[in-house]
Simulated scan of single mutants.
Amino acid sequence: MDLISRFIEQRSAFEQSYKDDDWSRLVPFYDEDAVYEVMAMPFHCVVKGRTSILNGFQKAVTNFDRHCERTIWGNSQVSVEGSNVIVVSGLTMTRGDSPPIHTALTEISSYKDGRIVRMIDLYAPDESDKYEAWMQNWGAGLDPSYV
């Protein structure tokens, strides 16, 4: 299976887990020693190990996403460079009658033997301040962190 097909399969499983909270379906897509990095946001982090990554997904979705409405936008640009799948897209989050918060996002997933060994979510660096302001005004009780 080529990398883009594997990525699409993983993304589909992620979206299903996002809906039903069964994160175990993602186990086959991540190496046991995978590393996940979130960059250029106040909740930046490095998460090590498949179990910690999946627990982090569940934590962030439970404590942030479930209280907001998420829209993925843009014509996602997907490319392959060596063993990496690179996706450029964006997210919009709203909460109740809040104004939307938009951010561009580049995702890089590095594969070995068909599993993700490293994943980076790089948010647009100039949007961190806007995100912090949105959280100050609309984020009471929300926690987007993975750790």
Results as ranks from 00 to 15, higher is better:
M1Y: 10
L3W: 08
L3G: 04
I4S: 10
I4M: 13
S5D: 11
R6D: 10
E9T: 11
Q10P: 00
Q10C: 01
Q10K: 08
R11P: 00
S12I: 11
F14R: 09
F14G: 05
F14Y: 14
Q16I: 08
Q16Y: 01
Y18K: 09
Y18P: 03
D20Y: 05
D21M: 04
D21H: 11
D22A: 11
W23Q: 04
R25H: 05
V27I: 06
V27G: 01
P28S: 00
F29R: 05
F29L: 00
D31M: 01
D31N: 12
E32T: 05
Y36N: 05
V38D: 09
V38H: 11
V38L: 13
V38F: 07
M39H: 15
A40N: 15
A40Y: 14
M41C: 04
H44F: 11
H44D: 09
H44L: 12
V46P: 12
V47A: 03
V47K: 00
V47Q: 00
K48M: 04
T51K: 05
I53G: 02
N55Y: 11
F57K: 01
F57H: 04
F57E: 00
Q58I: 00
A60K: 10
A60L: 04
V61G: 05
V61C: 01
F64S: 03
F64Q: 00
F64A: 01
D65E: 15
D65C: 15
R66E: 07
C68V: 02
E69H: 13
E69Q: 13
R70G: 07
T71A: 12
T71K: 14
W73H: 12
N75D: 15
N75C: 13
S76Q: 14
V78P: 08
V78M: 04
V80E: 07
V80H: 10
G82V: 11
S83V: 13
S83L: 12
V85N: 01
I86N: 07
G90Q: 05
G90N: 13
G90D: 12
L91M: 13
T92D: 14
T92Y: 11
M93Q: 13
M93D: 04
R95K: 07
I101Q: 02
H102D: 10
A104L: 13
A104G: 13
L105A: 06
L105N: 05
T106P: 10
T106H: 11
I108F: 10
S109A: 12
S110I: 10
Y111Q: 06
D113Y: 09
D113M: 02
R115G: 05
I116E: 02
V117Q: 02
V117D: 06
V117T: 01
V117M: 07
R118G: 06
R118M: 00
M119N: 14
I120D: 06
I120P: 02
D121V: 03
Y123P: 05
Y123F: 14
A124Y: 09
P125I: 08
D126Y: 09
D129N: 15
D129H: 14
K130Q: 14
K130H: 12
Y131G: 00
Y131Q: 03
A133L: 08
W134R: 04
W134H: 07
M135R: 02
Q136C: 08
Q136K: 14
N137P: 02
W138F: 12
G139N: 02
A140L: 08
A140Q: 13
G141N: 03
G141D: 11
L142M: 14
D143W: 05
S145R: 08
S145D: 00
S145W: 02
S145E: 02
Y146E: 03
Y146H: 10
Y146T: 02
V147A: 15
